[in-house]
Amino acid sequence: MAANGNPTWVDVSLPDVGSSQDFYSSLFGWTFEDQGEEYGHYHMIKAEDGRVLGGAMAAAPDDPTPPAWTVYLATDDLTGTLERAKEAGGTVLFDAMPTGELGTMAIATAPSGAAFGLWEPKTFDGFDAVDASGHPVWFETMSGDYDADLKFYAKALGWEPAAMDGVRYSTNRPGEAATAGICDAAEFLPAGTPSYWRVYFRVDNTDDAVARLLELGGRVLDGPQDSPFGRLATVADPSGVSFQMIMPSEA
């Protein structure tokens, strides 16, 4: 399983899973496998290489929360993690919920209000962390309360924050052990926009992927643009669910 505090799963709530399947299958080559009534028709998403990379579910019609991707962080002690999260200023939105023999999940928020999942595995560890097309390759929280969130993730989930030079950005661990980041977004989050987590999906060519996304009815929110880590774009699917696409740099 992933180390405590590392991203281990992602899933997305969608207004219409059927039409979204067509979009993501055409964009990334994903396939969706319905897990049946026992699991509320939760869908496992597989990349073109056959590896499971995440999940999808239908958004509840009366849910006021906009459909979005959720990042799940690994824990080998969900009960203890939830207690530490509350002690560190977080909030538990959904307490521990067993999912058959697969594991146990919960949903919490950091002090900034950014919601994330927690996953304690039994028979299912989560996705395989691979740098391959169509897979999630980076995860970060856009925080409106950077200092409080840094302390929160360190206490609740054992992060060892490593600050980047010249910017208010830290990774969850130093150097090559880093698997997620936290960005001080207080100055550029639009008024009324809550803090949130976001997911980067690997593509072989960002500009080509953006062109295909537009053909399929998606929208470009920012970019494409070059960064020290690769060429990236912030986009949204036709239902408004946002995510990042990145072609990592060779460095």
Rank of each mutant, 00 (worst) to 15 (best):
V17Y: 04
G100P: 02
E120F: 07
S249F: 06
M247T: 11
L27G: 00
E120P: 14
G218I: 01
A3K: 14
D128K: 12
P174W: 09
D149S: 12
A58Y: 01
R173Y: 05
V203G: 01
D34R: 10
L150R: 05
P190D: 04
T179P: 11
V10P: 05
K155H: 11
T109R: 08
H135Y: 04
F94E: 14
G113F: 06
L14Y: 04
T65R: 09
P228M: 00
A162I: 09
W119N: 13
G117D: 07
T70M: 08
L118T: 06
Q225F: 08
S239K: 00
L232K: 01
D77C: 13
G240Y: 11
F94I: 09
P66Y: 12
P161N: 15
G36D: 08
A115I: 02
S170T: 05
G181N: 12
W9R: 06
A59Q: 14
D204V: 04
D222F: 10
P15H: 05
M44P: 08
L53R: 10
P61A: 02
E176P: 09
Q35N: 05
A233L: 04
M105A: 13
F188K: 06
L93K: 08
G103M: 04
D145S: 11
F139S: 01
P238D: 12
D165S: 07
F243Y: 09
G36H: 05
A251N: 07
Y200R: 04
D165M: 07
F28E: 01
I182C: 05
E38W: 07
T79G: 11
W138C: 03
S26V: 00
F243H: 13
V10T: 12
G223D: 10
T70D: 00
V10Q: 00
I246W: 01
D207G: 06
S20M: 13
F28L: 03
R51Q: 08
K151V: 09
T79A: 14
L216M: 10
A132L: 05
G218E: 00
D95V: 02
L150T: 09
T75W: 04
V220H: 12
D95Y: 06
R173W: 12
F229V: 11
G126Q: 07
I107W: 02
E37W: 07
M247G: 01
T65G: 07
S19E: 14
A68K: 08
G230F: 05
V235H: 06
M142H: 03
F188Y: 15
P7N: 03
E120N: 08
I182T: 09
D125F: 10
R168E: 07
P174F: 14
E140V: 09
G103L: 05
F28Y: 05
S249V: 03
V130F: 00
C183L: 14
T91Q: 12
E160V: 15
S195Y: 01
Y146F: 15
Q244R: 07
T99L: 12
L157Q: 04
D11T: 03
D204L: 11
T99W: 07
A129F: 13
A185E: 11
D226Q: 06
D22S: 11
A177S: 14
S239Q: 12
K46D: 03
A114Y: 02
A59K: 08
W197A: 03
F229W: 10
G18H: 09
